[in-house]
Design a protein around this nucleic acid. Sequence first.
DNA 1: GCATAATACGAGTATATACACGCATCGGCC
DNA 2: GGCCGATGCGTGTATATACTCGTATTATGC
Lengths: 154, 154
Amino acid sequence: MPRGPRPFDLADCAHIGANCTLFNLRKASRVVTQFYDESFRGARLRGTQFALLAGIYWRGTATLTELARLLAMDRTTLTRNLRPLRTRGLIFTVPGRDRRSRSVSITARGRRALSMAFPRWQNAQSRFVRRLGRTQWRKLMHSLQAAVRLGDSV
Amino acid sequence: MPRGPRPFDLADCAHIGANCTLFNLRKASRVVTQFYDESFRGARLRGTQFALLAGIYWRGTATLTELARLLAMDRTTLTRNLRPLRTRGLIFTVPGRDRRSRSVSITARGRRALSMAFPRWQNAQSRFVRRLGRTQWRKLMHSLQAAVRLGDSV
DNA sequence: GCATAATACGAGTATATACACGCATCGGCC
DNA sequence: GGCCGATGCGTGTATATACTCGTATTATGC
């Protein structure tokens, strides 16, 4: 007769390293972050900051909430990530339509920093695509964007 | 006659959101982390901590450096990530072969926590695979593992 | 017009991540 | 046996990330 559910699923935990989406995604994130930051070493921007600044440049003026949603980032995280950029005068915030909201924009200095760092991004990006192979890279990008879309509906 | 390289590549920066591997990977990482952590809400472990604990369980006893390499994680990051697990008595460290090295192992309490949280992981994992579609999920995993392998040779 | 829900934001707290640096220890070389 | 590079770790510092809570403002229902 059945003994009911096992109390321990420990044996199954052995396969988490191979099967867990979260584990593998974060691991890849660490690897790629370090890969890109190699190219940004010695620059005053990191890869993450460069991408954020480029996002602000691309988006034009946006409120914190809009930008956070665009980046699938918690709003309070965005606020804190903006701080080093703001301190260095690469971005600025002004009151939005409401007296509640604040809008973020890139400064001239920010545009200069962006264009100065662009070759470093290009270097990291091309190194990465070459090492992975363009076909495999495209698959990776498609898969990532499919995963990101899951967040939109939530 | 050629004018040399343009001083500004700002126009190209507009495409970073679509092309940058780092940006898209970190964005996906945020989305998926939140997706998994929904299932771990109310539990005493987060998704990341569960995965780390499962890794320690799977690996058996390992030094910090070995484990960090296995996770593609900076050694000092691992030390800090272990702290909350250690404080709660889910893992313990003993001197290794050397008097320099320290080995990490899971405790009985850690095994219990792991098996208690396993259904939550299973819930998140199955929800994710279902939402993404099994075929697309497999592609994602393959792509991520290919990206991770880039770190091995570095 | 006013009470109330909804929206927008920051601060506090905690984890996740990595680099630079320094300390302790080990192994090899003389 | 002692020096010296290599190895293993922890701490200090800084960024990256998200949740909870509190405050201010706006919109809505009556």
